[in-house]
Amino acid sequence: MALDVLESESIEILREAVAAAGRPVLLYSIGKDSSVLLHLARKAFHPAPLPFPLLHVDTTWKFRAMYAHRERMVRESGARLIVHTNEAGVAAGVNPFTHGSSYYTDVMKTEALRQALDAHGFDIIFGGARRDEEASRAKERVCSFRSAGHRWDPKAQRPELWSVYNLRIHPGETIRVFPLSNWTELDIWTYIERESIPIVPLYFAEERPVVERGGTLLMVDDERFPLEPGEEVQRRVVRFRTLGCYPLSGAIESRATTVGAIVAETAAAAASERQGRLIDTDQPSSMEKKKREGYF
């Protein structure tokens, strides 16, 4: 029952925002939340095709399995995919190993996203963020207003009553729309199970090559991973609760090989899913700071 309510609410938000949009786009990051969001969008506009393209901001450091899954989902959904990479960042050799997660994220994610949005003139941008993820997101609106230059000012947010959304903007301004605002991690997994939504296999436990660094298990996904002195690659049975750039995504030891097992594991979890995200904790109030600068 609760999932039906969440589903209907998300569909209502997607439709409302599309009705107001000039150039809508869905920010597709290939992870589980994006997968649910894409599924809901297909349901919302059925039998019509998706009324917006998918945008993937590619840092070039995603897991290989994520690229494969992206191609599969584009094929199956018939969606139009736009891939954008900050070429200046690539040319400058910006990478998560030598530049640190904060600078890397700023250049390859935040800056890249701004470039892509400006280049295409998107005004309504759907994202899969949830309020339960992090403290500053708990106050995020479903429809989050960004002034020209993609700046998020927590004090300039519009009051949001009932499900009446104010989506009026001037040229240059944009609105980030989060249809999954009221979903929790457990809801996401339960829904994936109920709807049989395809997800990246990295979410399931499997023996994988990993390195333990600073208490975090990092997967050695390709030959670009530089080993530090004394480190060696071990094979362990692990899976991922969240997926991003592979050098910044921590794995957990788990035996969950089905969605059902993941649901059970999530329900009993003692640590929050963002624990594996190295970028949340690199500075005090770091997520709030990143959002002000335009990070999703």
Partner: peptide
Amino acid sequence: DGLQAEREQGITIDVAYRF
């Protein structure tokens, strides 16, 4: 109390949603 300004002032300013 999630936002920096709220922590500094020790009060809730905005509506926060918790689950």
